[in-house]
């Protein structure tokens, strides 16, 4: 039985408007983040995963705009909040860390100033007490000699250190939900593992829920309880992590897994997904993945499948799993074209 959801995103739509053209970056995204668990959002660049995350906190910059849907955090729709109410949530109840630790910290402020600001903003804590807490927090995220680091500027720290500072800043007010937007993408492989470990540990200590956005299925396997696979601004598959890896249903998910080296099965070669993500104006009217899907029929190109329940806590957006499917009945999506 799925535990209570801390966050429910329903049919979220965010578009960018450029001289009258609408680019649907997030086009009806729906997912749940169960309390205390980690939801992974995986997808290629441009699939809308980062924009979905920024939309949760309403951090979309012009010319982007959230045009529909609901973001229900602890029973309340955040999209109905005023700016002021949103500011009380940002960095306090929901925090976010970003992909680029090199550019995500203010270059003209010390590490201490930037962490202290979180305490000052949400708890009204002054400089002295704030400094003490900031040092405590830096210690928590594993930064050696925090008393010295606190007066340093971001450019004096390595990428891994900066990401730790970002985490310290994000977790300063003990948020209930952390959104990590590709937190390890810009880091060295060894540092990646450390940062992932750190997030997992802190999650356990603080009992918070996490949304882990990544294009790396390895990170998903290591950290997540549930996974939402995104393609073309939509969630195409939402499963718990074990089921997803054991029995992927959506042809896109299967494609992702096939293109990944694995230790648990014998692979002679990796099978890439054909083609590339179509640009927004070339998106098929029906299933977004149709143009790259080895099973797609005419029906798929024209008609958009709904996100349907296929099991408890499992949903999929694919015609193959509906009664309307008129394609090859013998298709076994989970074992396609494997050469071994």
């Amino acid at each position: 039985m799925q535990s209570e959801s801390i966050l429910k995103v329903k049919d979220l739509k965010t578009s960018f408007f450029d001289e009258g053209n609408e680019i649907k970056a997030v086009d009806g995204v729906t997912f749940d983040v169960p309390q205390g668990k980690t939801l992974g959002i995986v997808g290629e660049s441009g699939s809308g995963k980062s924009i979905s995350a920024l939309s949760i906190l309403q951090l979309i910059d012009e010319p982007g705009k959230i045009i529909g849907g609901e973001v229900i955090f602890k029973g309340k729709n955040l999209l109905e909040n005023s700016d002021k109410e949103m500011r009380k949530i940002r960095g306090n109840q929901i925090s976010m860390i970003f992909q680029e630790p090199m550019t995500s910290l203010n270059p003209t402020q010390t590490v201490g100033q930037q962490i202290r600001e979180a305490y000052k903003t949400h708890q009204g804590i002054g400089k002295k007490e704030g400094n003490k807490k900031a040092i405590e927090m830096l210690k928590t995220v594993g930064i050696p000699s925090p008393e010295r680091r606190i007066d340093q500027y971001p450019f004096e720290l390595s990428g891994g250190m900066r990401q730790r500072v970002m985490i310290a800043m994000a977790l300063a007010c003990k948020p209930e939900l952390l959104i990590a937007d590709e937190p390890t993408t810009a880091l060295d492989v060894t540092i990646q593992a450390q940062i992932i470990e750190l997030i997992k540990e802190l999650q356990k200590d603080l009992g918070m829920s996490v949304i882990m956005i990544t294009h790396d299925l390895g990170v998903i396997a290591e950290t997540c309880d549930y996974v939402a696979v995104m393609y073309g601004g939509k969630v195409v598959e939402y499963r718990d992590v074990i089921t997803l890896f054991k029995d992927p249903k959506h042809p896109y998910t299967v494609g992702l897994l096939n293109s990944l080296p694995r230790h648990d099965i014998e692979q002679e070669e990796l099978i890439p997904i054909k083609g590339t993500v179509p640009s927004p104006d070339e998106m098929p009217a029906g299933c977004r993945f149709a143009s790259r899907c080895p099973f797609a029929t005419e029906h798929c190109f024209v008609n958009l499948p709904e996100l349907i329940d296929i099991e408890e806590n499992g949903q999929i957006r694919c015609w193959i799993y509906t009664d309307e499917w008129d394609g090859d009945q013998e298709v076994k999506v989970y074992e396609p074209e494997r050469t071994s």
């Binding site: 906190l57 951090l59 910059d61 500011r87 009380k88 949530i89 940002r90 960095g91 306090n92 925090s95 976010m96 970003f98 680029e100 550019t103 995500s104 910290l105 203010n106 270059p107 600001e117 979180a118 903003t121 949400h122 970002m166 800043m169 994000a170």
Partner: peptide
């Protein structure tokens, strides 16, 4: 990016 970080902090 750091302006987005500041906004994400709730200031």
């Amino acid at each position: 990016d750091y302006i987005r970080t500041a906004r994400a902090k709730g200031v």
